[in-house]
Simulated scan of single mutants.
Amino acid sequence: MSNLKPEVGSQDHAQGGKSAAITIVEFGDYQCPHCGNAHPILKEIEETFGDQVNFVFRNFPLQEIHELALPAAIAAEAAGLQGKYWEMHDALFDNQYRLSEDLFDELAETIGLDPEKFRSDSAADTVKEKIDNDFESGVRSGVNGTPSFYVNGTKFDGGATDLYQMLQESTK
């Protein structure tokens, strides 16, 4: 059984109930079609279960096969420095079919980021370090593809739909 390393902490982007009984960590790649397919299901989980679930996203860009995965992760992390991580996260998945270098600036503008700060933050070492730390966490936790889910620190064997069904059963 693979366990999450390190545990969820202040370095993570989380939404939902901070003291929820169920914490879900997704290791994802913004260019991965499976992550793109899982995204609407995860949004539905958030809407359905709200504060019953604490949802965390960790970057796991598969750079060998997805050349825009790392730049997309950088865009999300840079947006996070302006308090708009989840807005960029959602916008990247909503626009996955048209990912490109130009899209990042366009989305930054759409979600109301300061464009100069966004560009300088995108080049910051701290942003790259956060992504490296997330990726390293995935490697240490036994992630072998995206999306990979961990529920309360233990690898979940299944996709987003299975996760939704499991939550429905466990919160009855």
Rank of each mutant, 00 (worst) to 15 (best):
P6W: 04
E64P: 02
N3I: 06
A72L: 05
L62M: 13
G145R: 09
D102G: 13
K84P: 06
T146F: 08
E116P: 06
S10K: 14
Y30Q: 07
G16M: 00
T146V: 04
Q96Y: 06
D134L: 07
G50P: 02
M166Q: 09
L70E: 13
Q11S: 15
L113A: 02
P71A: 09
I41A: 08
L113D: 00
H66I: 01
E46A: 09
G80Q: 12
G159N: 12
F49K: 12
P115C: 04
F55G: 08
N37H: 10
L167W: 00
Q168V: 14
P115K: 03
R119Q: 15
D157W: 11
Q82K: 03
H66M: 02
I24V: 13
Q15F: 14
Q15S: 10
S137D: 10
Q168S: 08
I111F: 14
G83F: 08
D105M: 13
N59C: 06
K172R: 14
D90C: 12
T126S: 14
H13Q: 15
A123T: 08
E136S: 15
D162G: 08
V56S: 09
G36F: 03
Q31W: 01
N37T: 08
P33W: 07
E47M: 11
M88G: 07
Y85M: 07
G16V: 04
E67C: 01
L70G: 01
E67R: 13
D29E: 11
S170D: 10
T171F: 15
R58Q: 11
